[in-house]
Amino acid sequence: MATCLCDAFFDDVARATVEVLEYLGCEVEFPEGQTCCGQPAFNSGDWPAARKVLRHLVDTFKGGEPIIVPSGSCAAMLYHGSLLAFEHETDLPEVEKVGQRTWEVLDFIVSGLGVKQWEGACEKKMAFHSSCHLRGSNSAEAARLLLGSLRGAEILPFKEQEQCCGFGGTFSVSFPAISADMGLLKLQNIREVKPDLLVAADMSCLMHLRGLSEKQGNPVPVRHAIQVLRDALVAEGKLR
């Protein structure tokens, strides 16, 4: 599943996901009818609208194969949020099945495929922002494990690391002051350790942090973890 953000803004992240999975020997499908996970409506409290989107998703992703998502947030919507949205609905079992098949991509690589280290190099100091919706899975550990195994890579710890970046979907526009201040605090803590690159497993956090920093006139370079892994393979000549 590409996610709506990658569909609209960050095509290279979806592309990197496909390339990495194929490199690892997976056969990748992209159901053309896919749209969004329904989280914007769910978090806004419009559960009927969220269910409408989710029913479409269940329909689009028929079958038994794992559903791989380059976003901890969309993945969590499918294995956790959707169950809440459907707790009183008769089609809960179908939604549940989709949830059970869903993986955040880094968690899938490490816990699903058993890959414990990555080939190639990345001679960079990285700040890894552990996006909040990785909490429900092993994704954060997986990301640190794979990124940390790259030759020359260094992952820098920074202050208040577990704190949210302030994006929060529609929260970012309905609570604009708090959202921006949370993001600016996060940027301040990240800049303090002087990383070459800010890495995360959710483009939503990176869109917010990058957007804030660019508006300040001092844009931080950002990359999704799956892009870093793909780039390392390309540099090593393992991928075209």
């Binding site: 053309e32 806004s44 409290g45 419009d46 559960w47 526009v173 309905s174």
Partner: peptide
């Protein structure tokens, strides 16, 4: 949040973009 929306509490939906249109878009490829 679901309760606030169902009960049409004005404070619950302040500043939140309406989701009906989005759901229509996101359920028709």
């Amino acid at each position: 949040r679901d309760k606030g929306k169902r009960e049409h509490a004005p404070l619950a939906s302040r500043g939140v973009p309406p989701m009906g249109g989005f759901a229509g878009l996101a359920s028709q490829p």
